[in-house]
């Protein structure tokens, strides 16, 4: 069962383009959407939400077609975004008064509980809030109308590490109910290293992979060794390679092959998502 189905989505801008991306976001799991800045993650999400119109392709969310059924779909979707376009001069209470009537399943009790939990005062004006508090407010709203799909676009970029950890716990709580799905787009991959179930990696407008996170981390490996181990053929096996006067460090996407190749002459480590993102973005052809 897929919460989101993207088929052959394309969009061209003058500076970059999203190029024929197809991917499925599985229902009941947390999918992390990673990629360097400007890779197309935000554009992809904006197309899912109907903010940007794709030049080609189709999107289905929660079993219905976007944008023809967008009203029904968005009743069941909660959105937390880095660009929080709230009305700056309104208070949180007034902002809620604007938003709540649109949702048929608005749960006032839940909302108040979250406001308390996040320590947000309803009379404060939006322009007085810090970035982190705005995100918390967006989260309180997103979680108060029985949404089954939570789409988060760079929600943690302005947040301190303490709240980021608390957020992950909160998300894990939400995922106790297997009818919920979370799509979490970020370039801070450490957030996803632990709790993400699936990872979709977008680089330069293309989809590099969309796979079970555990499998990705098992498949890739960081290889560290001495200069003398490299030659032209071996260099070609690396996705990205960083050489220095005291050795090399690189990423391969076939751990077993690397183990056979290097044996005990090199150190093999499990990469982090950040490693994979870094080395893929810096060098080598795109793994299609």
């Amino acid at each position: 069962m897929n919460a989101i189905e993207v088929r052959n989505i394309s969009k061209s801008y003058s500076q970059f383009s999203v190029d024929n991306i197809s991917l499925d976001i599985k229902k009941g799991y947390i999918t992390g959407l990673i990629g360097p800045n400007g890779a197309g993650k935000s554009t992809l999400i904006k197309m899912m939400l109907g903010i940007v119109r794709p030049s080609a392709g189709s999107i289905r969310m929660l079993g219905a077609e976007m944008p023809s059924e967008e009203i029904a779909i968005k009743q069941r979707v909660g959105i937390v975004s880095d660009d929080c376009f709230y009305y700056e001069h309104l208070s949180l209470k007034d902002m809620k008064k604007v938003i709540a009537p649109f949702y048929t399943k608005w749960n006032e009790t839940k909302f108040n509980r979250y406001m308390e939990q996040f320590e947000l005062s309803p009379t404060k004006k939006i322009k007085e809030l810090s970035k982190g508090m705005k995100i918390k407010f967006a989260l309180a709203i997103a979680l108060s109308h029985e949404a089954e799909l939570l789409i988060m676009d760079e929600p943690t970029s302005g947040l301190d590490p303490v709240f980021r950890r608390e957020l992950l716990d909160l998300l894990a709580d939400i995922m106790q109910d297997e009818r919920n799905t979370i799509l979490f787009s970020t370039h801070i991959t450490t957030d996803l290293d632990r709790i993400a179930d699936y990872i979709a990696f977008v680089n330069r407008g293309k989809l590099v992979f969309n796979d079970v996170k555990d499998d990705v981390l098992d498949r890739y490996a960081i290889v560290k060794g001495g200069q003398d181990l490299l030659d032209a053929d071996i260099r070609a096996k690396f996705i990205g390679l960083r050489e220095s006067s005291v050795g090399f460090e690189g990423l391969v996407d076939d751990r077993k092959q690397a183990q056979e190749l290097f044996g005990s002459y090199a150190v093999l480590e499990t990469p982090s998502l950040e490693d994979i993102m870094y080395y893929t973005a810096k060098g080598g052809p795109i793994y299609a």
Partner: peptide, 12 residues
Amino acid sequence: RQLAKDLQVSVI
């Protein structure tokens, strides 16, 4: 899911 949350690992 409870175990995944307690250990802070993926449900998969």
